[in-house]
Simulated assay, not measured.
Amino acid sequence: MVTLSARTDHDHVALAEIELCGELMIAASAAIGERLSADRIDEVLDVKVTATAERTTVPRQADHRG
């Protein structure tokens, strides 16, 4: 028998993150080129970037194509 518990705030956050990842995957699969631009990612995630907002960069792993 499986006991289901009430959903928590963590569940709602996790579901929102899954939905956003799905939106990014759809946009990436439809994109022309290798990567989505930062502007396109912001558009897909519905992020409003103001002129005073600073973008942070995430270091990328080295490309290990061999």
Rank of each mutant, 00 (worst) to 15 (best):
M1A: 14
M1V: 12
M1P: 08
M1W: 15
V2E: 13
T3Y: 11
T3H: 08
L4D: 04
S5D: 12
A6S: 11
R7C: 07
R7E: 14
T8N: 03
T8G: 00
T8V: 03
D9T: 08
D9I: 06
H10C: 15
H10S: 13
D11E: 02
D11F: 10
V13T: 02
V13N: 03
V13I: 09
V13A: 10
A14Y: 09
L15G: 03
A16D: 14
A16F: 06
E17V: 12
E17A: 15
E17M: 12
E17G: 12
I18F: 10
I18S: 09
I18R: 15
E19N: 00
L20S: 08
L20Y: 06
C21E: 13
C21V: 11
G22K: 01
G22M: 11
G22N: 05
G22D: 01
E23K: 10
E23P: 01
E23I: 01
M25S: 07
M25V: 07
I26V: 11
I26W: 13
I26H: 11
A27K: 03
A28E: 01
A28S: 09
A30Y: 03
A30W: 07
A30Q: 08
A31M: 04
A31S: 04
I32M: 14
I32W: 12
G33N: 02
G33D: 01
E34P: 08
R35H: 10
L36S: 01
L36W: 02
L36F: 03
L36G: 00
L36Y: 02
A38N: 14
A38W: 11
D39Y: 01
R40C: 05
R40F: 02
R40L: 05
R40I: 03
R40Y: 01
E43I: 03
E43P: 00
V44T: 01
L45P: 00
L45M: 05
D46W: 02
D46K: 15
D46V: 05
V47Y: 07
V47D: 07
K48E: 05
T50I: 10
T50H: 11
T50A: 09
A51M: 11
A51Y: 15
T52G: 10
A53Q: 04
A53I: 04
A53S: 09
E54L: 12
E54V: 10
R55I: 07
R55L: 08
T56R: 15
T57V: 15
V58N: 08
V58K: 09
V58Y: 12
P59H: 04
P59V: 00
R60S: 10
R60W: 05
R60V: 13
R60Y: 07
R60I: 02
Q61P: 08
Q61G: 00
A62Q: 03
A62E: 04
D63W: 02
H64G: 09
G66V: 06
G66L: 08
